[in-house]
Simulated assay, not measured.
Amino acid sequence: MKITRIISHVLSCDMPEELGYSQQYYSKRSAHIVEVQTDEGVTGWGECFGPGNVALANKVIVERVIQPMILGDDPIDRDVIWHKVYNLLRDHGQKGMPLQALSGIDIALWDIAGKVAGLPIHKLIGGAHRTQVQAYGYGMMLKRQSVDDHIARFKDEAAAIRDMGFVATKMKLGLGPKDDVKLAQAVRDGVGPDFKFMADANHCYTTSDAFYVGRALDELDAYWFEEPVAPEDHDGYRELRAGLKVNISGGEAEFNRWGWRAILENRGLDIAQPEVCALGGISEYLRVLALCHAHFTPVINHVWGSAIAVATNLQLLAAMPPLPGGLNPWEPLLEFDTTENIFRDDLLADPLDIKKQVKASGGSVAIPQGPGIGVEPDRDFLKAYAVT
């Protein structure tokens, strides 16, 4: 079997309303789907992390930089291909967009391997430790509105996400430390005293401001405080973890095993959040997962993007060993964006329908059992939303 063509499908559409987080507002939804074709008619699908113009830049890397390196290679030799591409690109980017581009291709190669074997990816990895995974719903995005309007909306939206059946919810921060504490209080008021909630700063604070917000999250019994400071600030992460009760989480902006080794050896995370569509794909994710578990750091995958990303993560969550194990082990969660996303909800020929699953099951999502990642995109949908 040989790789004959690699196609980047960059999708875009207008969103029903503008949303934001601590770094920016955005009014368009995008996704970057990668298709790897072979001479035996087996096609693999993957996804690259990165919205908007980042996706367009990654499309060039996928099709014009990486594709010529691996045309004619056997797609089953995915680890050989991974190291070939990484070594050739090492002088030009050990992190960032080259790794995002490689991630989408690598995921597609795993999809091909699963289809050739007639097995879901979790079987190729070593089997399923669980046949379903609990999901948490995030929302409570920032808008161009007053603090008081944010407070009222966050309280209502948090309660609504709880009532959808999700086992926990996650809010955004980013109005400034004092106002963010008010938002966190509103979320706690909305979900009640016993429901898990998490707060995501998207690395907008200095360490001192993160301590201010983190102490409030301690009092509110938040489950984790995500990306409180810049991903480069390893000392800040370590200080926050030592000084706060709330779990410190992060890592979505880190790449490959070498970047993750530095984070883990620094002991600055209670919960690791690798992003498979960015850090180097499934091949590298499995190495990062092993590093995390070697450091006794539990993993809750960062999940952002289309239904391809969601399905890929479901396969990985199924195959994730419990840490440390026992009768009632610590279990991972599926991250799910509750805001409108047609590239997740309408992309597939046979939709996952996560919200319906969560409501019917009391918070759980089934692991796809089809070969590879277990899902197939609708080609007419890809054409309808393609950026040309």
Rank of each mutant, 00 (worst) to 15 (best):
H129V: 01
V133F: 03
V133K: 01
Q134T: 02
Y136L: 07
M141D: 07
L142C: 08
L142Y: 04
R144C: 03
R144S: 13
Q145W: 10
D148T: 14
D149T: 04
I151M: 07
R153Y: 15
F154H: 10
E157D: 11
A158Q: 01
I161P: 05
I161D: 03
D163F: 06
M164N: 09
M164E: 13
G165F: 09
G165I: 08
T169Y: 04
M171A: 13
K172S: 05
L173R: 00
G176P: 05
G176R: 01
P177F: 08
K178V: 06
D180G: 06
K182D: 09
L183I: 09
L183Q: 05
A184T: 06
Q185D: 11
R188V: 11
G190N: 11
V191D: 06
V191C: 01
G192I: 13
G192W: 10
G192M: 08
P193A: 09
D194L: 07
K196Y: 12
K196S: 13
K196M: 12
F197E: 05
M198P: 02
D200V: 03
N202K: 00
Y205D: 02
T206W: 06
T206Y: 01
T207Q: 12
T207Y: 00
S208T: 08
D209A: 14
A210T: 04
Y212M: 13
G214A: 07
R215N: 11
R215G: 06
R215E: 14
L217C: 07
L217Q: 09
D218W: 12
E219A: 15
E219D: 15
D221M: 04
W224V: 06
F225V: 12
F225S: 11
